[in-house]
Design a protein around this nucleic acid. Structure first.
Length: 310
DNA sequence: AAACAGGTGCTAA
DNA sequence: TTAGCACCTGTT
């Protein structure tokens, strides 16, 4: 099945830029024309079933407007093809006018123009609230391969099968009732109590993840920060990747460095200052600006132009 | 071997 | 408000 996203998408930029932790390169069966393809799990929105479905996504070239989608129908009981397409579209932010975003940010300044050029077709995903929160709690002072490993471990141990050999991410209820011995077996280290605290506060309703949808970004962010392990950076990531608040500007050490070097004449800057600078410069597109910068710096993309010295 | 990784909590000024 | 330090674990 093909799904039209209404504007450019690069699966590589979108799925390897580090915003989501469960996508892996995987061959698309019977379709050698799809040059790039990945396997992962998306939320389906269905109430009864697991609410998640493993899918293969692929495209013919680096940047296209359509993507191909495949899945195992036996794990999509009660879902028509149209239902799956209707789950894929919002996950890949079909309603974002990516062309307009790229153009607007390219006009912003020469550095951002270069960053956009290197990350054409990158989209901010709309991930599941809870999986996003849990993933970023696990990301604290951690590295990406390790985070992915831990997330996969929890899915494999506590999640149900969702097709293609993959498992769904376990609910907060499922995490909340695990003892500390079990959590430690995931090798998530000191983050075990963070994850537990997040699950408990979500289950108790102290942090109502659906409620946050209606709140202004700043207020929702403050609410998330009641969870241990959720500071400014994690809260901004959850707002951006789990709630699609494009005005959020998460600052990690890489972004802080980039903001200092390119926009603040190399001064040493606190994360707070870098965040304020980013938000005031890029406004309602701050989230996209941040991802273009991050993709450019990290060098996962075609040109790690921002990482070179001088 | 020692340092570092997509930060945060805690304590002290 | 902010600076300084410890922190699980895996890699290099």
């Amino acid at each position: 099945m093909d799904v039209d996203l209404g504007g450019p998408i690069s699966l590589e930029a979108t799925l390897t830029c580090g915003q989501a932790f469960r996508w892996r390169a995987a061959a698309f069966p019977c379709r050698s024309d799809l040059l790039v393809s990945y396997r992962g799990v998306i939320p389906t929105g269905e109430k009864d079933g697991p609410g998640q479905l493993a899918v293969l996504v692929g495209q013919k070239a680096g940047v296209t407007r359509e993507i191909s989608v495949a899945y195992d129908p036996s794990y999509a009981a009660g879902l028509t093809q149209a239902d799956v397409a209707n789950a894929v579209r919002p996950y890949f932010a079909a309603s974002d006018d990516v062309t307009a975003i790229e153009e607007a940010l390219s006009r912003q300044d020469p550095v951002m123009s270069r960053a956009v050029q290197g990350g054409r077709g990158l989209r901010i995903l709309q991930q599941d609230h809870w999986e996003c929160l849990a993933s970023y709690v696990l990301s604290v002072n951690n590295n990406i391969p390790n985070i992915s490993r831990i997330v996969e471990y929890f899915a494999g141990c506590l999640g149900g099968p969702v097709g293609l050999g993959l498992f769904g991410f376990p609910s907060p209820e499922k995490i909340a009732c695990q003892d500390s011995v079990f959590l430690r077996q995931s090798r998530c280290g000191f983050r075990d109590r963070y994850l537990k605290d997040a699950a408990e506060r979500v289950v108790s309703g102290e942090v109502d993840l659906v409620d946050l949808e209606k709140m202004p970004t700043e207020q929702a962010r403050k609410r998330l920060m009641r969870i241990r392990g959720v500071g400014p950076k994690v809260a901004d990531c959850v707002m951006l990747f789990g709630y699609h608040r494009l005005d959020a500007f998460p600052v990690d050490v890489w972004i802080a460095r980039a903001m200092s070097r390119f926009y603040l004449s190399g001064q040493v800057v606190t994360p707070k200052a870098a965040r304020e600078e980013g938000m005031s410069r890029f406004g309602s597109l701050a989230g996209y600006a941040q991802e273009y910068l991050f993709f450019g710096i990290r060098g996962d993309g075609p040109a790690p132009f921002l990482s070179r010295a001088t």
